[in-house]
Simulated scan of single mutants.
Amino acid sequence: MWPQEQSGYLVAGEYQHASASEFICLDKRPKLREGGSLNHDGKTFYLAEAVCGSLPCPPYVEGRELTVSVN
């Protein structure tokens, strides 16, 4: 059995935003960087949710967040 290296959630940018985006794995315990309270309008990530038809339901559940495990 392989050791689990990382686990988290599948995220991507908002589909209506003009910038390009791809799905990535966001660690379930991300390391935060200290900063100020200024908003620089950086990249915002949104959780990917299951949609039945695109994915087989079951085992996926409509509207649930998709998790990722990297071994």
Rank of each mutant, 00 (worst) to 15 (best):
C25G: 14
G8W: 08
L55M: 13
G42F: 02
K28E: 15
C57V: 01
P59R: 06
A20C: 07
L66E: 03
A12E: 05
V68G: 01
H17K: 10
S54C: 04
G53K: 07
T67G: 13
L32I: 09
T67Q: 13
P58L: 04
S7H: 11
N71Y: 14
W2L: 12
K28T: 01
M1R: 08
S21V: 05
E22Q: 13
T67S: 10
K43F: 11
Q16A: 13
S69F: 07
H40V: 10
H17F: 04
M1K: 09
L66Q: 06
T44H: 05
L10M: 10
A20F: 11
G8V: 08
S54T: 06
C25Y: 00
Q16G: 06
V70H: 11
L10S: 02
N39L: 06
C52E: 11
G42C: 03
P59S: 06
S37N: 09
W2I: 07
E62K: 10
H17D: 14
S19V: 07
I24F: 06
D27M: 00
C57Y: 02
L55W: 03
L66S: 03
G63Q: 03
A48G: 01
S19N: 12
F23L: 11
S7N: 09
D27V: 01
G35L: 03
C52P: 03
W2G: 07
S19T: 14
E22G: 12
Q4P: 00
G35N: 12
E34C: 03
M1W: 04
P3Y: 08
T67A: 08
A18H: 14
E22K: 13
K43G: 00
L47K: 13
G63P: 05
Y15M: 05
Q16E: 12
Y46R: 11
L66G: 06
Y9G: 01
Y9C: 06
S37Y: 05
K28F: 03
Y9D: 07
D41E: 08
S54Q: 14
I24R: 10
N71M: 08
E14T: 00
K28C: 08
G63I: 02
S19P: 00
E14G: 01
S37P: 01
C25V: 14
Y46N: 03
G63M: 02
I24W: 07
S37G: 07
A50Y: 11
E22S: 13
K28W: 02
M1A: 10
G35W: 01
R33F: 06
L26A: 12
L55N: 03
L26N: 00
P3N: 09
V68A: 11
W2S: 12
D41K: 12
E5T: 05
E65I: 04
V51K: 14
P58D: 04
S54A: 13
L38D: 12
